[in-house]
Design a protein around this nucleic acid. Structure first.
Lengths: 155, 155
DNA sequence: ATGAGATTGATATAACGTATCTTAATTGGT
DNA sequence: ACCAATTAAGATACGTTATATCAATCTCAT
């Protein structure tokens, strides 16, 4: 139940901006606003929810189609993960880390859309891949997503 | 790679009809047509695809909203599984079995939407549940779905 | 300052799904 | 056999997520 060190939203955004710079890309103002929405909410949000957030909380009109493009960009920069299962997007929880991470797995709370990134033990993933291979299939990605309930929502 | 014994579509539909009778429900003509679509195709299909199937293959108009209701019914009778991940539906592969089955897991081919039901070993599921519990979450269902590629589509 | 490339806006459309109200079919009790 | 109650199905409207396409705008290096 121990948490990672807590960073402020602006620290995370600064880190993301420097990261983009180092990769020769730009974290524009609009991209920063979308990322801020995801970081602040601490949960998974849809493109349309983020457009609403920009309008209501930041007093800034951003059409959903632009949000989609921005999310694509943020995902390509590994600052955001797209969750197929929930059809939503979540800020990567490792923006403030320097080191590389294993393929993450995502636990998505169906109640409140909070998301935990975990790394399933290699042995467990191996067993799973074997079970799948046994019937002639293969996992399309090691980045798994699981419908879950968080502690608060399981009551 | 060994397959279960093969049953004809009509054998499966007869079995389903008797099963409903024994439960005091009715496998009406329309419900049977939808189930036939899923059984014949041997893959996962959306409600709209099934409506198209009824129109094109069975020359029978069935509005998508009715297909949805029928799929709800078939799912409540355990004749059909709804796959959240693919947003499609698949015929249960155990309609012709008499015995109960463990909670199935679904391997869904992203290429062709063929589906394999497997039963992941209890030990593996226990480890997974533990990993999830360790961060204060719990799996919303033991009926997992995995994006996969089948043998034919992996090339 | 200017032109290429990157970024954003605007509009239309597709696919999947739910909500609600109405109509039709079926069943069971008299 | 008939009628009321239940079940099943049709019809319409709307909500949500997402892609495609074309036009406009911004940025940066020359």
């Amino acid at each position: 139940m121990n948490q990672d060190p807590v960073f402020s939203t602006s620290e995370i955004l600064d880190r993301a901006e420097n990261y983009c710079k180092s990769r020769g890309t730009r974290l524009t103002d609009k991209r920063k606003k979308v990322l801020k929405g995801l970081v602040d909410s601490k949960k998974a949000m849809s493109a349309y929810e983020l457009a609403d957030y920009c309008r209501d909380e930041l007093d800034f009109q951003l059409p959903p189609m632009s949000v989609y493009r921005i999310l694509d960009f943020l995902e390509s920069e590994h600052l955001v993960h797209r969750l197929d299962l929930a059809k939503k997007y979540v800020a990567c929880s490792h923006i403030t880390c320097d080191h590389q991470h294993e393929q993450p797995q995502f636990l998505i709370c169906k109640g409140c859309y909070r998301v935990r990134e975990i790394s399933i033990k290699r042995g467990l993933m191996n067993s799973l891949n074997e079970s799948v291979a046994k019937v002639g299939f293969s996992l399309a990605s090691q980045q798994l997503e699981f419908d879950c309930l968080c502690g608060d929502c399981s009551g």
